[in-house]
Structures are given as C-alpha cells and as structure tokens.
Amino acid sequence: MVMDQYTIVRTLLRDRTRLLAYIWTIVHDEHLAEDIYQELSELVLRKQDHFQDEAHLLRWARRAARFRAIRALRQRHSAPMLLSDETLDLLESHWNDADAQRQQMPIDALCHCLSKLSPYARRIITFRYVHNLTGDSLAQKLRRSRNTVYVAMSRIHRTLAQCIRRYELTQSRSS
C-alpha cells in the first residue's frame, strides 16, 4: 500500500525540522541545508508512489538527502570537509530513534528555559539565531574571543538541554 499525497506532504512538513537538522549535520551550512531540503521535497513528491509508510519515506528521504548533500559539497569544494561515511552510517540509527520518538523541542519547555537564561546568554542567542552571526563575527560583536564565545554557546546549549529535561520531568510528575 502506497502513501497518499496528503500524508506525504504532512510527513514532510511535520518532520522538516529533523530532516533539516540531518542535512545540516552533513553540510554544516544551514542555508545549503535549506536548498537541499527544498530539492528533496520536490523529489519526494515526484516519487510519491514509491513510499509505503512514514518510516519508509523518512529513511528514503535521509538517504536521498545524504547523497545530495555530499554531491552539493563536492560541487562547491574540491576537497570538502565531511564526516566520514562510517560516522554518518553510525549516526543513522540515532536519527531513526529520533524519528521514532518524533523528537522535537518541547515548546513550553524551551520558552521556560530561555526565560531562565542570563541576559548575556540571551544576547548571545539573539546574535547567533536572529542575526545569524557565527565565528569571528559573533565574537567581534560580543567583544570576546572566538573560543570564549563557543565555550559560552556550548554551556548555553547544555544548560538548555538540562533545563528542558528537568522541566519535562516536573511536568510529567505533576500530571
């Protein structure tokens, strides 16, 4: 039994964040990742008679995305900087797990945890994700060294992840 177009479109929309994140981990360029996602969506719609269920679609989409991502990197750079095939293969099972859990950022948890960040952390988040500043530009804007900024970023992400886990735990207990 093949999937109907409606379900395919719904899956592509619902799982876009994870697909984009997946492509991003290969091309490590979020704009290029978006370009590839767009190509991928068109490809999936062209092949809509091919998919049996959502899991099949997502697995197929990731394979196609990986192929296209590597091809796009090779078109741009003669010696692209890539994670090895072996690593990408190893990561695959974790992406499958994320699919199975429909892993998304819990909305209320994210809001709650962002509000707990210090003004400096919020400032970094703003520059990084609103203005898309990275690396030296971000460091320059914050008047810090590049290394310091990445240390701060990593702490923010770790803090957020911990906060979100705690928040979810609290919520599940209270419910």
């Binding site: 994140a21 690593t87 609103v130």
Partner: peptide, 30 residues
Amino acid sequence: QLDQVLKESPVHRQQFVTLAIQAQCMAEAV
C-alpha cells in the same frame, strides 16, 4: 576530531543528533 569522537562514542552520537535538532529548533524559534 569530531569524526573520531562520534565513531567511538554512542553517547556523543546521541548528543550530536539531539544538539542538531535543538539548534535547528532554536533557529526556527526566533
């Protein structure tokens, strides 16, 4: 270096996937 860590550590692979999704969500949120 990252490649090597990911090869060796399932925990870090899981962390890497979660981080990518989290960062993507952050980018979408603002």
